[in-house]
Design a protein around this nucleic acid. Structure first.
Lengths: 329, 329
DNA sequence: CTGAAAGCGCTTACAG
DNA sequence: CTGAAAGCGCTTACAG
């Protein structure tokens, strides 16, 4: 109802002055300012941000897209992202792709139609090709996955080191036939973790067997098939590394219901360290990622970029610390 | 860069005509339309929605606030909500309160500053007092929790019936000392489920013991304390109903690590039916709620309300079906 | 069927 | 220190 014009009339000043006090312009005389402030309060006036945004050609909104929310891994990242946006005075729109291209397009359209100023892509929620077309027109930050050759900041953990540490833990316990259930897509994090895993094997003098590596989705049936597939080739397995807590929980489930041909003596180390790792039985030993911080830092980087003048500095990889949490598996 | 004005110039028409083809106004001559469409494509023009929104005084955006995302219960609701928004051509902003009043205020401010047109509150993400001040000025829908006396549509399951069915299942198995770990807040769903529980006891001739009921948060420590507190009073427990899957998983954890004084013979029925119920060991018997549909329907109702002319019809309770899924506990 | 013009509610040089 | 005025990029009666 009430617009800036009515406030101006009531306060006997111009709309310009009202706008100035709204924006805390120090130039307005205290007496004037107080009068206007009082009228604003009396009228319960709230500025129409639709108008402000148009005038300033800025929505002060960023978007974060994630593959889904079904994995608590992503909700923690989203939580950090939300906090960062508020700390910086931005709105944030968090969306999940659910593997649907049209949903992704909806969010990208927000960029193109001025509804959002920048975007962070979490995990592999976007293809490299699409990214290439976006990167020089819009501000984008990557979270969790790195795309070499793409000029966008990426916030992640040191996946190679993490893969190394996870494998070393199993080796330390005496496991030598270590399967690696990687993520379902060929991503930079998968590649890096495998590299680290190989390094740990190498260090321990254990031969690398490519047959022990396979990707799987975060679905019970898929994980079961993959593990049984490896066993079916006559491979032994006495240790497993999984790409996520969820996958590890499925391994446990399969062992328990005997649909996966492994004994419960198998060593199991998962990635992520979400609450899932603590509610399984046994609880999961895992590489815990600083999920909240990953989300928080990604959004901060994005907003810095939006506010930076040149923005032409080299975009790089920002690594956040992870750690191995030894639990029961 | 390119605005409607430049498209108009290139196409040798007025901006009014460009606007008309943009909005699919059937009045424009096909030849003109095609010419404009072609220029739009050539220039890769995208309308500035900031301007459109201001002009139309509508953001075509709704918000959904949830207490948090840490419980997969909420992420499923959010998933449904997102889908509904897209199906209806709206943007949706999904936010989590994390028990912080200032975050809630941020989202409510989006309503007041014209950034959003309506809001759905999930679970007890808002107090009744605040709701009362919002309800006659803005479009609001409640999801999961009902506030009697508040004129807002509410989408939920029949909690009384669900509580009844959950309790009856335990009674059917021969359990007679059934504890009820309710939600942490005094909410309509808690009250209704307890009513149903009482009804089942009554039907079976089992006396109701108020000492067997206690609220708990979705925290391991809290659930442990509550259960042990009941046992400490000298109460027996051979069955438990929990407000959430998460709480049930904590009971299981406590039994396993012997920090909760219960045997694994205890009957356990949880509410929600999220993936948590399937990854615990044993898996959880639970009342599964149509989470996705709850979110989807809530947003649909909200948008209908926004689009409805009068909007003065009586707001009511919309009940969606649930069912009992018997698993291992 | 199309165009000229007003206006959505703000912000911000510019002048005083 | 304050105001008049232009303008952000659209939409939409109104006139023709």
């Amino acid at each position: 109802m009430s617009s800036i014009k009515e406030v101006a009339k009531q306060a006997h000043v111009s709309v310009a002055t009202v706008s100035r006090v709204l924006n805390n312009d120090p130039v307005v005389k205290p007496a004037t300012k107080n009068k206007v402030l009082q009228v604003i309060k009396e009228m319960n006036y709230k500025p129409n941000l639709l108008a402000k945004n148009l005038r300033k050609q800025a929505s002060r909104t960023v978007v974060m897209v994630l593959p889904s929310m079904s994995n608590p891994y992503f909700s923690e990242i989203a939580r950090g992202a939300q906090a960062a946006a508020y700390d910086k005075g931005y709105n944030i729109i968090i969306g999940t792709i659910e593997s649907k291209r049209w949903i992704l397009d909806t969010y990208i359209n927000m960029l193109k139609t001025n509804l959002a100023e920048g975007i962070v892509f979490v995990s592999s929620s976007v293809s490299k090709e699409l990214l290439e077309t976006l990167v020089d027109e819009y501000s984008v930050v990557l979270c969790t996955e790195y795309y070499p050759g793409i000029n966008a900041a990426c916030v992640a953990i040191d996946n190679k080191k993490a893969g190394y540490e996870a494998a070393r833990e199993l080796i330390r316990r005496g496991h030598t036939h270590i399967a690696y259930i990687a993520g379902s897509s060929a991503s930079s994090s998968v590649a890096a973790r495998i590299e680290g895993y190989k390094e740990a094997l190498n260090e321990a003098g254990i031969p690398f067997r490519p047959e022990l590596i396979a990707g799987a989705k975060n679905k019970f049936e898929h994980v079961k098939e993959i593990v049984n597939g490896i066993l079916g080739q006559g491979m032994q397995i006495d240790g497993i590394l999984t790409h996520s807590d969820l996958q590890a929980s499925y391994v446990l489930k399969g062992i328990k219901e005997k649909s996966i041909g492994l004994s419960d003596e198998v060593g199991l180390v998962s990635f992520d360290g979400t609450f899932v790792a603590e509610i399984t039985n046994p609880t999961l030993t895992s590489i815990v990622q600083p999920l909240y911080d990953l989300g928080y830092t990604s959004v901060c980087k994005l907003i810095e970029k939006l506010q930076g003048e040149s923005g032409d500095e080299e975009e790089g990889l920002i690594l956040l610390p992870h750690h191995l949490e030894v639990r029961e598996t």
